[in-house]
Amino acid sequence: MSLRLSTVILPVRRWQQGGREQWVRAEELGFHTAYTYDHLSWRTFRDGPWFGAVPTLTAAAAATSRLRLGTLVTSPNFRHPVTLAKELISLDDISDGRITLGIGAGGTGFDATALGGEPWTPRERADRFAEFVPLLDRLLTEDAVTEHGAHYSADEARNIPGCVQRPRLPFAVAATGPRGMRLAARHGQAWVTTGDPKVFESGTPEESRAAIGGQIERLGEACAAVGRDSAELDRILLTGFTPDWAHRLESVDAFVDFAGRHRELGITEIAVHAPIPDTDFAADQKTFERIATEAPAQLG
């Protein structure tokens, strides 16, 4: 099974002060996709520069020509399907069909309260996600949509001419619970995991891989329930949140070992954060670039 190698570029650099160069370099290094987070702010980066995902990806689309681009991930925390669809159709057009939408239910971080409301409970997030994804699917595939839901509505929302990619740009659905898995099975072209958060805190590498293997099995069950072959979905691992990740960017061999073990589980794409000095994503830039250029050949 082939394994794609992608990267995640956090939007922390001004475009004219190293931001543009990161995206151009990602294309030069041969990454399959370069993603960015879609947050208003995030964790320890809250008190520093943090730019918007859609404008950043628009600029990246203009600066590159082959590299796929995407969010990892967008959530309903501060998005509405109608306005998001319009932005995505525009972005897909500007990039000439190189956009993937990573999408998840969101969490309880800064995004959850930035608009002045109370954070949603896990059930509320799941309920909203269950409405958000199908409506967004319709908005990206139909010229005009009217729908009235409990959380999201559209009234003759027009989205002409639609996406360059047909029938629409691909969804990479981040999910581990049963409701999210069903959304991935019905609407996803890919599925995203960061592993098991509980195992990340106190588990072993073996337990982490077992947990991811279990998630992939449940994805297969969700696909079977809707009459879909799970092999149709790419399976993306966003790295940095599993107990076996420590030191994996210290050498090409260490990364290849990590990636190979996850490929055996059924992972088809691994996304690695571009190094940011003095953060949890610190790594040697030269080694990171060697991994980008040498690891794919070793992984086959």
Rank of each mutant, 00 (worst) to 15 (best):
L115Q: 09
L88N: 03
A231P: 06
R13I: 03
G48A: 05
F258S: 05
G52S: 12
D253I: 08
T239H: 03
G162L: 15
A61L: 11
L265K: 00
L29I: 05
A61K: 09
F255E: 08
D278A: 15
A274I: 10
A34M: 08
L5W: 02
W245Y: 14
F31I: 01
P170K: 04
D143L: 06
V82K: 02
D278V: 13
D253H: 09
S153I: 11
F281K: 03
P205S: 08
Q17M: 13
L219Q: 10
S90C: 10
V24D: 11
E232D: 15
T293A: 12
A53R: 11
L237P: 11
I94C: 03
V133Y: 06
R290F: 01
V256G: 00
D96L: 15
L249K: 00
N159R: 07
A282V: 08
L140W: 02
I276D: 03
I267L: 08
T242K: 07
G266K: 01
C163Q: 06
D127G: 07
T100H: 10
R46E: 13
G149E: 08
P167F: 13
G213I: 00
E289G: 01
H80M: 13
Y37I: 12
E294P: 07
A112H: 03
H247S: 13
R248M: 00
